[in-house]
Nucleic acid binder design. Structure first.
Length: 349
DNA sequence: AAGGCGGGGTG
DNA sequence: CACCCAGCCTT
């Protein structure tokens, strides 16, 4: 039996936590080490909200949304009582809209049961809470001995251990390694410290090993090319899809629709559009008969394809009967996902 | 295990 | 252009 790789890292928490006391990022949802030391704990609602919001999202992009949500819905009960369309609208532009749908589901389940569960296993059962988020909430909000392994932590440990194997398998090694290192007394600070190390020191392209508190433990550093890790599979090229958005004006109103809950941009307010296809622009099927004018094109990149989006505009004297139509004041349009926001802005010119 | 699912910032 | 980011869910 080979010795576990984490055996070499037993001194890591003792080096990392003192560093964190000096260099923790002061984020709006955090309770810093000095305040934790005198017994303060973060509000579980804010911890949960920020964790969901920051999934696959940069802190600068997500932070304004965190402020907007906590101001408008200060508690999980307040959020649970919100209207679906208000929450989806407030989430517009943040992306991964299934998060917003699950956020509401989760808020309502939590409110119904009288508060957040405190263990990783129970948190994991709630919608939108996966392995990372369950560990993060349990550790940060409830002082549970749980690990929070996000992209930062994956990168840090890929380097500490100089992992060269298949990435999906190595991520499991990392998860077990981190789990074994979580200190009993300060699991939340340990989770935040690892993330901060990855975000501010052990960065993707130019890790700053000279200021790293655990560089002496790092196998990749010893090899000399830490930036070579993590070794991930090559990404496949994104195909291009083509689509058309329709901006139909009737006096001061514009035609919007709501997309079905499942699938791309699910549950979001949108401009009418057909399915987007590869190979070129298809025949147009506008939502109403009118004098349609080709306004131009916007481009947008999604996770697994790029979109060339042609924008058509027309003006009608009266509102045609259109099932599902959401007629909206043209100057008060809000809550559109970015791709439709781009298209609509083009049509306003 | 693999693929769907946003958006913006950075080099 | 590519890669990355406080990942989760479905199939």
């Amino acid at each position: 039996m080979a010795p576990a790789k984490h055996r070499d890292l037993n001194s890591l928490p003792g080096k990392l936590l003192p560093w964190f006391e000096r260099h923790a990022r002061d984020l709006p949802w955090r309770t810093l080490p000095a305040d934790r030391a005198v017994g303060e704990r973060p509000d579980p609602y804010r911890v949960w909200l920020c964790e969901i919001m920051m999934q696959q999202t940069t802190i600068p992009h997500g932070t304004p949304y965190f402020h907007a949500f906590t101001e408008r819905w200060p508690s999980v009960e307040a959020l649970a009582a919100a209207k679906d369309e208000d929450v989806m609208s407030a989430w517009a532009g943040l992306g991964y809209y299934a998060r917003a749908r699950n956020l509401l589901k989760c808020a309502r389940e939590v409110t119904a049961r009288g508060g957040f569960p405190e263990t990783e296993a129970e948190l994991r059962k709630l919608p939108g809470i996966g392995p990372y988020t369950a560990g993060a909430i349990a550790a940060i909000a409830f002082d549970q001995k749980a690990a929070a392994v996000d992209g930062n932590v994956d990168r840090v440990f890929a380097r500490l251990l100089a992992l060269k194997g298949e990435w999906a398998a190595e991520k499991k090694v990392i998860a077990e390694t981190v789990r074994a290192l979580v200190p009993e007394d300060r699991p939340g600070e340990f989770a935040e410290a690892l993330m901060d190390l990855g975000a501010t020191v052990c960065t993707p392209t130019k890790p700053n090993c000279l200021i790293c508190p655990v560089s002496d433990l790092c196998a990749a550093r010893a090899e000399g090319e830490p930036e070579r890790y993590p070794i991930k599979p090559a990404k496949v090229a994104k195909p291009v899809r083509y689509g058309t958005a329709y901006v139909l004006r009737v006096k001061d109103q514009v035609l919007l629709v709501r997309r079905p809950d499942k699938g791309l941009l699910g549950g979001m307010l949108a401009l009418p559009t057909e399915d987007w296809v590869e190979g070129g622009f298809a025949e147009t099927r506008p939502p109403a008969t009118a004098e349609w004018e080709d306004i131009g094109e916007v481009r947008h990149v999604f996770t697994h394809f790029a979109l060339r989006f042609r924008v058509m505009r027309a003006e009608a004297a009266r509102k045609p009967k259109i099932p599902g139509a959401i007629w909206t004041n043209a100057n008060a349009v809000k809550g559109l996902p970015s791709v439709f926001e781009k298209a609509y802005k083009l049509a306003l010119k």
